[in-house]
Amino acid sequence: MPLQLQKPIAFIDLETTGTNLGTDRIVEIAIVKIAKDGSRQVKRKLINPEMPIPAGATDIHGITDDMVKDAPTFRQVANELKQFLDNCDLGGYNSNRFDIPLLVEEFLRTGLEFDMNSRRLLDVQRIFHMMEQRTLGAAYKFYCNKTLDGAHSAEVDAIATWEVLEAQLERYPQLGDNIDSIIKFIGDDQIVDFARRFIMSNGVEVFNFGKHKGKTVVEVLKSEPQYYDWMMKGDFPLHTKQKLTEILNRTLLKKN
């Protein structure tokens, strides 16, 4: 069943220095953009992370310090990537928990505005885990009957993710044929911050970690205002700090 698109969708895959949203960096990005007519554009770039690539990360994706020493930094390509992703929904494999959050962090570090409010996020892994419980390589074998040669190459993984989604639409007609129907079927994450330090509960933001877990953010900011300063100085992702500041500012506005 061909996917009916109201606007383009961009499947993103990153290779990185590690998995910490607050401190790790992108070393390779591949974007497979599917237009409304089904045509495909691919953009792939090696990125200089401006930090050493740990040996454990190189063992996974094969990218070394020497391979990226002359590559552009994220700041140097940020505007080009932003324009390529303009007016696109975003997809990937485990992308809602890693690739998209880390990409947003990189944009925040550059100070370049990357609006997420109008974008729908389609994580193909959620369909697979709901239906079959497997990894991307197994998903590719299961749905496409192909071996995923070159796994952990960003471009290979991003293209494979798109092919897996196409096969899922054929296998599961109950998904429908558009982004809205798929997200309705698999459930839409109510994301406050990508690191999930806050979650929504009964329509309000609550802490999802630490001594205040389960308490509303507004309640804590009122009773313990120094907690805001502690988080802003701490090793939290920029997106988490941005959302905390938005909640604080909203609280102050209501006061006045």
Rank of each mutant, 00 (worst) to 15 (best):
162 W>Q: 14
68 V>K: 11
133 Q>T: 06
45 K>Y: 02
110 T>W: 03
76 Q>E: 15
94 N>P: 02
148 L>W: 05
59 D>E: 15
140 Y>L: 04
51 M>T: 11
130 M>A: 13
143 Y>T: 11
165 L>D: 01
98 F>R: 07
157 D>S: 08
60 I>L: 13
93 Y>V: 06
64 T>D: 12
128 F>P: 00
100 I>W: 11
146 K>D: 05
103 L>E: 06
107 F>G: 05
128 F>I: 12
75 R>M: 02
50 E>K: 15
63 I>V: 10
147 T>H: 13
84 F>E: 02
101 P>L: 14
151 A>Y: 10
149 D>Y: 09
87 N>C: 07
93 Y>K: 10
131 M>W: 07
142 F>L: 12
68 V>W: 01
156 V>F: 10
134 R>A: 01
110 T>L: 05
65 D>Y: 07
105 E>T: 09
64 T>V: 10
53 I>V: 10
67 M>T: 07
103 L>A: 09
89 D>V: 00
162 W>M: 14
64 T>W: 02
62 G>S: 11
82 K>Y: 04
100 I>N: 13
124 V>K: 12
133 Q>C: 01
134 R>M: 10
100 I>E: 13
167 A>R: 15
52 P>V: 05
122 L>A: 04
167 A>C: 08
118 S>N: 09
117 N>P: 00
54 P>M: 09
109 R>S: 15
60 I>W: 07
64 T>H: 05
58 T>L: 11
132 E>F: 04
81 L>I: 15
90 L>C: 02
92 G>C: 06
139 A>F: 03
143 Y>M: 09
61 H>Y: 06
67 M>H: 01
83 Q>I: 04
99 D>A: 01
116 M>S: 03
160 A>Y: 03
118 S>G: 00
123 D>R: 11
81 L>H: 01
83 Q>A: 05
168 Q>R: 08
133 Q>Y: 10
59 D>Y: 08
122 L>C: 02
129 H>N: 15
151 A>V: 07
119 R>Q: 04
157 D>C: 04
166 E>D: 12
47 I>A: 02
43 K>V: 00
99 D>T: 07
80 E>Q: 11
52 P>Y: 03
70 D>H: 14
127 I>E: 07
64 T>A: 05
81 L>F: 00
143 Y>S: 12
56 G>R: 14
77 V>A: 06
87 N>W: 01
151 A>S: 14
135 T>D: 05
65 D>K: 06
134 R>Y: 01
163 E>N: 09
60 I>S: 13
138 A>T: 02
101 P>R: 15
97 R>P: 00
144 C>D: 12
143 Y>C: 08
107 F>T: 08
88 C>L: 04
47 I>H: 03
103 L>P: 00
100 I>A: 13
140 Y>V: 04
155 E>W: 03
113 E>K: 12
74 F>G: 11
105 E>M: 06
94 N>V: 10
114 F>H: 12
47 I>Q: 01
98 F>M: 05
46 L>E: 07
164 V>S: 12
144 C>R: 15
135 T>Y: 00
146 K>Y: 04
51 M>L: 08
145 N>I: 11
158 A>Y: 01
148 L>H: 11
148 L>K: 08
157 D>Q: 09
83 Q>T: 09
106 E>Y: 07
125 Q>F: 03
